[in-house]
Design a protein around this nucleic acid. Structure first.
Lengths: 193, 193, 193, 193
DNA sequence: GATTAACCGAGACGGTACGTCACGTCTTTAA
DNA sequence: TTAAAGACGTGACGTACCGTCTCGGTTAATC
């Protein structure tokens, strides 16, 4: 009945210990302060045990991020403009204050070399897009948005401009930035007054 | 006149040799194929000579990128729409085909740790924005654009969405993407038909 | 039984390979021609593997010397005088001809800085004294020597004068030197005709 | 008259500054704490100025030692035995207490590679032998010693055994060692009771 | 007084070796 | 077969000296 493979079964607790250790170390010193030896030692686990479950340091980190995703609640103000403005404002605050999260950039780089890591990163991106998608979907159902196609574009533009400023140009996130951005995006899309 | 500091002046030729070697090696194998020992050997230079001028591998790479910026000619079709579409299309082609340049991602990550590197990256970003800025400036002078504020926003949105797709979401650059993107942006800004 | 420590045991073959490589390289170019990278490469071993076992280049060299001690056979002519003269003569020939072995001087210097290295050097010295000690012990058993205490002194005087000429004063080792030296040392010590 | 070479004459003060800096640094950290850059900086002198006068680091150090030779007064007790015992005792005290002078060992090693340095070291040795030579010469003139040949031998044996214990075997310098050593040497040479 | 040539300080130069670190894999014994 | 432990080969890192070279400027003796 039990279709168990032969040999000693994997220790389920190890997964948890490893991920916890990873999250802790990431919190302490970011990617730079994270080495596999350190994770193994802190988790009380052999290095091989980690590599048996995750193919690389970055795969582990990605999983650790998915375990503890930054909870961003979907705002619900009753209008697209309100929702998007609320979301963009909170994003601006988060991006503007954070001490340069180095985890995502590291994964972005690592994804260049590894196919599967790239897929995981894309999946993670999609997860993070969900908030905006939900907002836009509700707007569409309410009739605030008419053209279906623009929705994909709006997601890219909204998130893209934030990431671009954060990682590339370094331009600051003034309080007005979020508002003007949403204004611009909605200036012709919104159907009614 | 020139208030030269004492001691033997730095060999200007070394700068060139080092940067050239860096560019060559980057071209061959990206960041992964670039080690300081290799740069030094190829440039016929001691490692200390490199570290005397650039504090880190990444600072060197950034300078190398600025020395040999990817020549993107500013399209001039006579209209904003034409110019932006041409630009976005060429960008889509470039981003869509390139074999995953790992250089920029690497610099983005490294910029997380080093203040000065961050500044250099921002400067480099500004350089890359120049093409779009020029297009928009001409459009403004022609009277195609009326609201000056939007120009900054458009730069962020246009480039941001490209980088976001490239580095994060992994969504492909269909030929229609560029066109639709420009359409969307202009539909919110162009003064006249 | 064996209370083996946990983890993968050290590769005993590596010890041998490293020591062999060290001995080879010392033979080729002395201490000057010995770098840790070279030893590692020739031994087919990582540098870390060497440093895991020996704390420094010199500790490694000392061990290498102990592994391959210069075989100096104990002469056995039937009399102290004969034995010592034979030994001193062969030592004079060896010291006089050798192309300035730089290994021992290097270790002597290095031993100044490192406690454990110093201990190893002393142990090595004791090893090299063994030949003379054996000769004197036999002489004592034969009754040629009476005063036990002088034996230690004779060892120091005999070897000391050789090393001193070799390393410090540079005075040559004339064929007569060895003979006169032994004559002097034995001139009152030998009990009988 | 003045057969001076053309050009600016060498700054005599520089010699002094360099040697002083060298002696200071040797005192602080021995050879290990001595780098040419440091000497130059402390002496307020260009490195080229040092190399114009001394061909190598070790040549400089040797000169520095000769400038400040350890003043060992020649004891004069009226008898060879008294003189030698006094000398050997003071040597034992000096060798026994000193914190492992690393300068001489370093020079010994360096002399392996450099012909002229070797010559300088031999000369320096001869200088240090002078005390014993003087003692023995006086003894010969007094008639305490009869065989002239032994004098050379005694110098080698006396100093050799000290250096050997100091640098190689590491055996301690007990208070009795000096006395027994002199007893042994004199028992083989002294003409009269 | 101008010229010349060796000097001066400072510090950059090409090299070489150092000892450390992290990677991802391998090899033990024990469960 | 998996586990913890930890050794393994690899390869890059950034540092420290070495002894030389290159600056602008200084200091005599020679012209």
């Amino acid at each position: 009945m039990a279709d168990r493979p032969p040999g000693r079964p994997r220790d389920a607790g190890a997964d948890h210990a490893i991920l916890t250790a990873t999250i802790d170390l990431l919190g302490d010193g970011g990617i730079a302060g994270l080495s596999m030896d350190l994770v193994a030692r802190r988790a009380g686990v052999g290095k091989a045990t980690i590599y048996r479950r995750w193919g690389s340091k970055e795969a582990l980190v990605l999983d650790a991020l998915n375990v503890a995703p930054p909870a961003v609640p979907v705002p619900d103000t009753g209008s697209v403009r309100g929702d998007l403005t609320a979301y963009a404002t909170s994003l601006a605050k988060k991006f503007g204050s954070a001490p340069a999260s180095d985890v995502l950039p590291h994964l972005i780089e690592a994804a260049c070399y590894d196919e599967r890591l790239r897929a995981s990163l894309h999946e993670y991106s999609r997860l993070r897009q969900q908030t905006v998608r939900t907002i836009l979907k509700r707007a569409y159902e309410r009739g605030e948005l008419t053209d279906d196609d623009d929705r994909e574009l709006i997601v890219d533009l909204l998130l893209g401009s934030f990431f671009y400023r954060r990682l590339m140009s370094g331009d600051p996130f003034s309080p007005r930035f979020a508002v003007r951005l949403v204004d611009f995006l909605l200036s012709r899309t919104v159907a009614t007054i």
